[in-house]
Structures are given as structure tokens and as C-alpha cells.
Amino acid sequence: MLNTLLGTVTLAATLRLATPLIFAAVGGCFGNRAGVFNIALESFMLTSAFFATYGTWLTANPYVGVLFGILAGVLCAALFGLFVFHLESDGMVVSIAMNLGAWGLTTLMMVALFGVRGSFMDERLVSLPALHFSILEPLGKVNGVLNDQNVLVYLAFVAVAVMWVVMYQTPFGLRLRGVGINARAAQTSGVNILAYKWVSTIITGVFCGVAGAVLPIGGTSVFAENMTAGRGFLAVAAILVGQGNPLLAAASCLLFAYASALSVGIQNLGIPSQLVETLPYVATILVLLIYGARNLKHVSKISR
């Protein structure tokens, strides 16, 4: 049992599974903090996953794939921004439309470009390389968990640190948070609200682009219909739980990923697989419940 809970395989899988969530959540934190209601992260990721596949397949170079993914993420973000900021559509409606649309679009383009349904595999679909650090070798279990992971796994943690600094230690981050807290006050301080909302949404797009790229070329070398399977929504949940703080959001992502990793390992213990597969979602709901309970005091104060 303990071997499953804290085993090398489970922990290594946690890091691997957390990577797309972390990228999406860290980027999404910026939109969240700028006061942009965006739950279209799922569509940003799925579209990016497809174009990352396409870019890699065209050139047999996974880095080109990542670039394609980022480009697709930015385009999705631009579409979202166009509708929400300039055509003044409701963020919720645009998000739902994009999430449903992305599924249809990627499935259609799979047929059109690759001529397959369901999933796409090809020898030109090369994954990003794993990194090997020889200094970790004597460390036993730590080595097993941390070493030989995909390059994006390490980059995810670098991104968390860098974006935390951007959020809390730069004028840009301060103003961005100001826009989200009190837009009018930010305006009287000379901050261009629209510009900050746009930039924050584009940042969300870039990071969701990388997050999407992780799925097909982060080790598995396969693209499947609706490959994101709700990961964008998990990222949104992580952002809310982390209150837009990249560090806390990433921590939530790790928790969700751990639950997913566990559900893989625990199946060997004879627990019905249907039950086990609910684990990540049960964990998500539990975390959201605990997060919500913190606000209960606040709610009762308001409705007094």
C-alpha cells in the first residue's frame, strides 16, 4: 500500500501528469488576476495540442511543434480577447462556445490533415527528449522521481518560479493585480486597463499553448480526439483554489496530478477500476469544498 502511495513510479507520474496542468494554471493565473473571466483554457490547450502535433509531424522536430502549440494558444487567446474585450460578449458564453468548438475543430482537422479518427500515431511524431542529470544518480529514490523526465517537466517548475516573480516583484505584476482588484482605481493611477487585460489573456494563451503541446509530444507521441479530457478545467480549478497565485495554483495541480497517478497505481490492489478512476475528480471536489469552507465565514458575515 505504502509502496503505491509514495512509490517512485507514482511520484514520477505525478510530476509528469502535473506538467500540462501547471503550465495552463500558471498562465491562467494572469488572466484571473487581471479580472478576466476565462474558462476557455480547455479549448486553448486542445487546439494547441493539435497544432503541436501538426508542427511536429510536418518537420519531425518537437521544438517546432511546441512553437506551433504556442502560436495556436495565442490565436485562441486573441479570438477570446476580440469577443470579450471588443465585441463585449460574455466571457462565460465565449468560453463554452470555444470549448465545444475546439473539440469539433480538432476532430475535423484530424480527419482532414491526417486522415484518421480517434487517435493519430506516426513515426514523424517525435516527442521532446528526456533530460538526464548524472549528479542525481547517487540519490536513489529522488533520482528515480526527478531524473530522466521530459524537458518540459523541468521547465514547468522554472515557469512557476519566474512567473511568481513577474506577478509579485515587477511593476507589471503589481498593476495587473491592481486592474483585477479595482479597475477604476487602477485607471486613476494611470494604468491602461484594456492593455493589461489583453496582455494577461495573451500570457494565458502562450502558457496554454505549451500545456497543450505537452500532451502529444511530452513522451507519448500520440494525438487523440479530445486529448485534454478536462485538464483545462482542472487548471481553472487550480487557479481558483490558488487564488491566482502561481505557486499555490501549481501546488493544487500537483495534488490533482497525484490523485491521477494514484488511480493508476491503485488499480493493482483489487479495487474496482471504475471507483479508482473517479479519484482525481473526487480529489478536485474535495479540494474545492475545503477551499469553499474557508469562505463560509465571509458569506455569513455578508448575509448577516
Binding site: Q169, R175, I181, N182, A186
Partner: peptide, 27 residues
């Protein structure tokens, strides 16, 4: 009506929009 940011520190409130930066463009 005060043009303030409740969730920020008073120091951050005061410098909003008129920050000073040091190395690397950090606050």
C-alpha cells in the same frame, strides 16, 4: 470613494502606477 486596492499592502497601494524599479526591472 477611495481608489484603493483592499487586497494589497498599503505600500503597494501607494506606489501603484508610480513604481520605482531596480535591477532587471524588478520593483
Amino acid at each position: 470613494e477611495f481608489m484603493l486596492f483592499p487586497e494589497l499592502t498599503i505600500l503597494d497601494n501607494i506606489m501603484m502606477g508610480y513604481e520605482r524599479t531596480g535591477k532587471l526591472g524588478l520593483l
